[in-house]
């Protein structure tokens, strides 16, 4: 069972308290009616599903109930970092540095 750091509660808490919420940084288009069918399809269904670093949403559902974002390495199933909704996506350098830190 993973420990997940809730950026709102600022604590490492057991996975049981959290729920997965799909890929992160897919904003709902401001005006869906302006989108072509293909663009809307991409928003609805197309996900990156990488082997490795994945940006994803989690919710501290049995805690503060807040949604937040996380970077998880999907092969080793390790959380690299979590951050609040609305905060910028961590840069490649930040992610690389964290990966190095964890494998050391």
């Amino acid at each position: 069972m993973l420990l997940i750091h809730c950026p709102y509660c600022e604590q490492d808490l057991p996975e049981l308290e959290f729920a997965y919420g799909g890929e992160a940084h897919i904003a709902r288009p401001a005006d869906p009616s302006a989108l072509t069918d293909e663009e809307w399809r991409d928003y609805l269904f197309i996900r990156s599903n990488p082997r490795g670093v994945h940006f994803e949403r989690w919710r501290h559902v049995h805690g503060c109930a807040r949604f937040f974002n996380a970077v998880r390495e999907t092969v080793g199933d390790k959380f690299l970092m979590t951050y609040k909704t609305g905060e910028p996506r961590p840069s490649e350098e930040e992610v690389e540095a964290r990966l190095k830190e964890l494998s050391a």
Partner: peptide, 13 residues
Amino acid sequence: LGMMEDYLQTEWP
């Protein structure tokens, strides 16, 4: 409730 919270927290804060 979860769906409402999701939109309020992440799309329409």
